[in-house]
């Protein structure tokens, strides 16, 4: 078989194929429910109800979407420059770490502490990705493996800190950090609703990234670098420097997920702060076709699947891992569907 490009894809093709990919994912969900001995339609209904069926469910989904918007943005910014940052998980923890250290050790008043915590987090996250990107630009070391391995190193480092220097003396022996003081926490977005300012910050970040990508020189340079690094270099774009800047932005965004989770939701740092938000950010970014505003929508969808599956699992007895399978299949179906909007499969 051969792939021939389609010059002007019809709207039916451009919308129909992604819709088909989502439909196929729903079919997989029903199949998985059948395997688990549950009623497929009832399972789907329970997922939907658990994700958006009540005010409580909806707020839970928004809360879960918050870190995913940050990590999704981090991945989309990097992938657009074809910088394969698979280390958002490590950058998230680096951000969470600085958030806790600044918030609990310096004893600053809240209005001063919060911005400093956020800056510290961004700085730490950027620094964690700086290493791999410099190794890539200077020595040609593949960043996929280095960023992946850093996730494991960071997890061990955090585990060490939580059992050693950062351990909460009042923690009854649990490996967790001391809690942030009340005034060093992100306030509620709307009084009375269990949704914190991290969500607001995530929306602002998405908007900022979108403006950066569409309205600034750096955005243009990042796109050019991602499309064709040789051509970009030929056009006078300092590709190495663009990649470093991209890395700093990407690492910083991922770190904000850690900041927002600690300062907005949990109040302290534990080793299980992130159930893989960094990795899930890749799915979020790809489902959004790397578009920063699309990331918000896809993060809400992905968070909905997780929250819905959690609640469904309690009621229907289908393992929660159904959510992870569905997101992986959605990812694979979607990249295939998007390709097929642009090319036609020809025999021969």
């Amino acid at each position: 078989m051969r792939l021939d490009p389609i010059t002007a894809p019809s709207p039916a093709r451009r919308l129909g194929l992604p819709a088909l990919a989502l439909g196929a994912t729903v079919l997989v969900a029903m199949g998985l429910a059948l395997i688990a001995g549950a009623d497929p339609l009832a399972t789907l209904g329970l997922i939907l109800k658990g994700a958006a069926g009540s005010k409580f469910a909806l707020l839970e989904t928004l809360n879960r979407a918050t870190p995913l918007i940050f990590t999704g943005l981090a991945v989309s910014v990097a992938f657009r420059a074809r910088l394969w940052n698979i280390g958002a998980e490590a950058q998230l923890y680096a951000g969470a770490l600085l958030t806790v250290v600044i918030g609990t050790q310096l004893g600053l008043p809240g209005p001063l502490a919060l911005p400093l915590m956020a800056f510290g987090a961004v700085f730490a996250g950027a620094l964690v990705l700086l290493g791999p990107v410099l190794l890539k630009t200077r020595l040609g070391v593949d960043e996929v493996v280095t960023t992946l391995l850093l996730n494991f190193i960071m997890a061990l480092f955090i585990s060490y800190l939580l059992e050693g220097p950062l351990k909460d003396p009042m923690g009854m022996g649990w490996p967790k950090s001391p809690a942030l003081p009340r005034d060093a926490r992100l306030p509620r977005l709307i009084e009375g609703l269990r949704l914190h300012w991290g969500f607001g910050l995530a929306l602002i970040s998405a908007l900022t990234v979108w403006v950066m990508q569409t309205r600034t020189t750096l955005g243009y340079e990042i796109r050019a670098t991602g499309l064709n690094p040789e051509a970009a270099r030929f056009a006078g774009i300092p590709v190495g420097r663009v990649l470093v800047k991209t890395a700093l932005i990407s690492g910083g965004l991922a770190a904000l997920a850690g900041f927002s989770e600690v300062a907005g939701l949990k109040g302290n740092l534990t080793a299980d702060l992130s159930p893989g938000f960094g990795y899930t950010g890749i799915v979020v970014a790809m489902l959004a076709l790397l578009h920063p505003l699309g990331v918000v929508v896809s993060a809400l969808f992905v968070a909905g699947v997780f929250v819905g599956a959690d609640s469904m699992s309690r009621a229907a007895g289908v393992p929660t891992y159904i959510a992870d399978i569905l997101l992986a299949t959605a990812l694979l179906f979607m990249v295939l569907a998007i390709l097929l909007t642009k090319v036609r499969v020809v025999r021969g």
């Binding site: 990795y279 890749i282 790809m286 891992y321 159904i322 992870d324 997101l327 992986a328 990812l331 694979l332």
Partner: peptide
């Protein structure tokens, strides 16, 4: 398709299928 994206997708799919 992108070998990075597909590969990571397969890792997620295989891991979660095993756990499920």
């Amino acid at each position: 398709l992108s070998q990075h994206v597909v590969g990571l997708g397969i890792t997620m799919l295989a891991t979660s299928s095993a756990y499920y």
